[in-house]
Write a protein that binds this DNA or RNA. Sequence first.
DNA 1: TTGCAACCGGAAAATGATTTCCTTATAGTC
DNA 2: GACTATAAGGAAATCATTTTCCGGTTGCAA
Lengths: 205, 205
Amino acid sequence: MRADAEANLERIIDAARSTFARDGLQVSIEVVAENAGVGLGTIYRRFENKEALVLELVRRLLGEVIAIAQHHERDPVGRGLFGYFDEVGRVLQANRGTLSRIWSSPATTELVAASRLSQTRLVTAAIDAGTVRPDLTPEDVAIALWSIAGVIDVAGVDDSIAWKRHTAFLLAGFTNLTAEVKSRPLRSRELEDIIRESPSPSTER
Amino acid sequence: MRADAEANLERIIDAARSTFARDGLQVSIEVVAENAGVGLGTIYRRFENKEALVLELVRRLLGEVIAIAQHHERDPVGRGLFGYFDEVGRVLQANRGTLSRIWSSPATTELVAASRLSQTRLVTAAIDAGTVRPDLTPEDVAIALWSIAGVIDVAGVDDSIAWKRHTAFLLAGFTNLTAEVKSRPLRSRELEDIIRESPSPSTER
DNA sequence: TTGCAACCGGAAAATGATTTCCTTATAGTC
DNA sequence: GACTATAAGGAAATCATTTTCCGGTTGCAA
């Protein structure tokens, strides 16, 4: 592969990510090409069709999400899940609009499975540490992430307050525990951090 | 308007709602026409274009949501918001896919405003009654509803477990209160009902 | 410096949906 | 039962993409 071709490929991926993030998946490839500063043909030489381009973005996104999960599996007891949500939110914002294609495509099945596996480990650890309700499932986590991505989609491109508050509420819901478990000190450090970041005047606590 | 025309109009609306719910907003008008048992032309005589048809669905959906809110404003102290979420979820499921158009269209601005107004009243009442955290905003509620709609979209057409659990977590997050407020008896009656409806073995409480 | 395989851009064809429009059918009325 | 305004249907025009393809360009190895 020639050096210029490789550079162009990266420019296409970057332009696709930011263009889709701003205007949604329905923007034409022509616009992506313009934003990448390449011709239409250049995109079609690298990707069989539009779907393939989107899939490549999805693959990279999932890879990032999995890496984040694995990183947080090493966190001190029970905190991994919270750190995971916090970081994944940022990645989702950078990939606004892309997530919706993940579940539909069979091409990403193994990646989704890997992602589920890491989510399961995070949930199990959190339950064991008593930082979330004991009936929390990996599906709940996957759906919560999905919903956060949805909120990011509908909010303004760089409105990060909306999804952070949303995340905070979900995580607070996850920790709906019985009294003796609640008394553990570390419980919602990250949670409270996220809530504190949001601007609405918090009269409680 | 002739009687048969009126009947056809309803068939079109119904077919549009269920077709979009099943296959998403991107299905062609031709398919909607088939499902409604009418010709393409029939749809285009009633609606200027596809957008207008979608907008009519949105308008009806918003009308329902507002009616639900107004109904729950009369609920005993602090319970209205929870009942509202419970009922709106069902309506959203019947209108799968449609909600995403609400915010984008200026044509629904007044309806959105009306909806916000009723949400504000529900939130204020809940805060006054001490059944939710005092810093909860109507925006939080709107975003939560949005996210629930998103979860409904991605889940199977008739999977209602996913969104109900999701709703339960969000509402639990909304009630993240200080101890003395928590002790009030009615706090999360509806919440617990919703959680109990979901199948995952609840080992707590 | 040259040769050429790899690459580029963008015009044009193909595709698939929306929308128009005209012919035929029918409900409601007298 | 006949008349007419209103409605239905669907073939064809239009439109917005996606996708193909080819003449011209360029990086790079020899």
